[in-house]
Design a protein around this nucleic acid. Structure first.
Lengths: 184, 184
DNA sequence: TTTCAATGTTTGACATGCAAAACAAAAGTA
DNA sequence: TACTTTTGTTTTGCATGTCAAACATTGAAA
């Protein structure tokens, strides 16, 4: 049952890689007003050849629009997709940094990795949680204060500390995983 | 000869796919006591040929041990890795289902997707948060109660509801999935 | 208008990860 | 022992995504 999740990924029309192309166009159009093939290849650090092939596929699939001077922009579908991804990224970034108190740089990187994997359901639930958590509700205010004190006081040196006890589970990672393609 | 040394250094990292092979062996050994090549291919839904090649690579890299009857088990390194991944999966599963109140099935699937992408830092922070959130601390108890009431009461029909307002951002989600006219 | 640099496309190569099928070895069974 | 089935390996081929380099086009400057 769990491996079915990965099978589902294979059935997604857009690859990980393609999503990055769309994100690049979004960013480029936003920052410099336009996106040519060369801009995308500079932005993503890929060769012009690779970009040419993939972008043309995405044009054919209807995610990207190309004008007569070969300037690209996202179609409505492409825009929707990028918005969904960006929303999730921001959501996770905030969840990790503002609530879990993860270092903002790490939070940003992790959010970037997760952004287009998480379902709408989970995203909406997290949003709902954050809405209440960060609200003025006195129980929320009290909790935040209590947690920040707890966090400040716990040096994780304590033998009773749950975190210390369990943290070792995570120790096998970091060095082993390959970044499937370097565009995260 | 000399380049073999370099090859080993080069190949320290594992692909997503390889991680699944390790996870499969872990599960198989745990559930049925052993893991042969055929068991792995049944479990992962891959052909014997594919499994043969990949498993032998992982044996060569030292993640899997093979006995004289070609039964496989994880090496210490392999075990460490699988534990790290499983810990993160469980952590996220619980975060989503117990705290964010995501449907358990969805939580499981999402956790499965992100399990080996999230850093140790974020994982530890989440663990810490959950530790306090689920504790007996009166502020935590009060918050949980308040949140569950909030969640129960909010039908997301309200024009003021933040979730409703922002949820549309996620709506591009469904378009990830394959559609009919596929011009690739 | 001609020339040249920038940009885009095509081609051939490589690596990964998979399937299918031929082949080989091992294990079970008559 | 001989036959059959199961299991493992090798080979071939496919798809994706990349690079490098040859080639084509475009646009601006001389």
């Amino acid at each position: 049952m769990i491996q079915d999740v990965w099978k589902k990924f294979d059935e997604i029309e857009l690859s990980h890689s393609s999503v990055h192309y769309l994100m690049a166009i979004h960013t480029l159009v936003k920052t410099q007003g336009y996106a040519r093939s060369i801009d995308i290849s500079n932005y993503l650090g890929l060769t012009r050849g690779s970009v040419s092939i993939t972008v043309n596929k995405l044009v054919a699939k209807g995610y990207i629009l190309e004008d007569k001077n070969r300037f690209f922009k996202l179609s409505d579908t492409g825009n929707q997709l990028v918005n969904a991804v960006l929303s999730k990224r921001r959501l996770f970034e905030r969840l990790l940094s503002e609530i879990m108190l993860v270092n903002p740089t790490v939070a940003e990187e992790d959010a970037c990795k997760i952004e287009h994997l998480v379902t709408k359901e989970s995203s909406a639930k997290i949003l709902s949680f954050m809405g209440f958590y960060l609200s003025d509700d006195p129980r929320a205010v009290a909790f935040r204060k209590a947690f920040s004190e707890y966090n400040y006081n716990c040096t994780h040196q304590d033998e009773q500390c749950d975190v210390c006890e369990i943290e070792c589970y995570f120790s096998g990672d970091e060095n082993y995983f390959r970044q499937e393609n370097d565009l995260s």
